[in-house]
């Protein structure tokens, strides 16, 4: 049995190597772009409303609501509006990823202890200086945690993007499901899982680099 599986899988890679690599690269590309946009929106949005508690509450509520809608539903709902392909996939994945980054940035920026802030001000830091030299760096670990959550969710959900023709590793899985080809499903699933794990590891590495004081 084992031997047979190995044979089938080796055969797949021998004949479909280029296709496989392309799907991996599409998957990574979609994920990276979505993560980048979500990071800009999430952190930027949080910075814009930092200091305005009302706006923070409203935006948090809005993002939380979006987050509850399953990505697959968003993808399907987008078809009449944006059609199929990469754009609607990017849109749905970004929507999924903004909330954790936004929320974590907000709570990160309020995580500095009041005593730390008091001494910063007491020693003569300006409001701006206190923000960029104290509040912002102390928020980084939480922001990074938010980005990590978002990245892993994106990599996993990007699989669904194949459903609307955006490509990526989902294609192998959906093809496998359609053809009852367990080997394809297995290859797809293991690849996505590996990519997710690697994403987590890379961002853990970034954590060590950006947060040396922990």
């Amino acid at each position: 049995m084992n031997g047979k599986w190995m044979e089938v899988i080796t055969e797949y890679f021998r004949t479909n190597k280029d296709l496989y690599l392309e799907m991996v690269s599409t998957h990574i590309k979609i994920s990276l772009i979505a993560l980048l946009i979500a990071t800009v929106i999430g952190i930027g949005g949080a910075l814009l409303v930092s200091g305005n508690e009302r706006a923070q509450k409203i935006l948090s509520a809005v993002f939380q609501t979006f987050r509850v809608v399953p990505s697959l539903a968003v993808l399907i709902l987008l078809i009449p509006i944006m059609g199929t392909g990469i754009m609607p996939a990017l849109f749905a994945l970004t929507l999924l990823a903004v909330p954790p980054i936004f929320m974590n940035t907000i709570s990160g920026l309020t995580s500095a202890s009041p005593f730390t802030i008091e001494t910063a001000v007491g020693m003569g830091m300006t409001k701006r200086g206190t923000f960029w030299k104290v509040k912002w760096p102390l928020a980084r670990p939480m922001i990074l945690a938010g980005v990590k959550t978002a990245a892993i969710e994106i990599v996993a959900s990007a699989t669904l993007a194949a459903k609307i023709g955006a490509g990526g590793l989902g294609e192998i899985i959906f093809t496998g499901l359609g053809l009852y080809r367990m080997d394809l499903i297995l290859i797809g699933a293991v690849s996505v899982a590996t990519l997710s794990l690697m994403t987590g590891l890379i961002l853990d590495g970034a954590d060590k680099l950006l947060v040396p004081w922990k």
């Binding site: 005593f115 001494t119 910063a120 020693m123 003569g124 760096p137 102390l138 004081w213």
Partner: peptide
């Protein structure tokens, strides 16, 4: 800000910057 930079300030919780 100018006043504060001329004056040393120490509090109980040390208020050191953890980062």
């Amino acid at each position: 800000v100018v006043v504060r930079r001329r004056i040393g300030y120490v509090i109980q919780q040390s208020g050191l910057f953890p980062h």
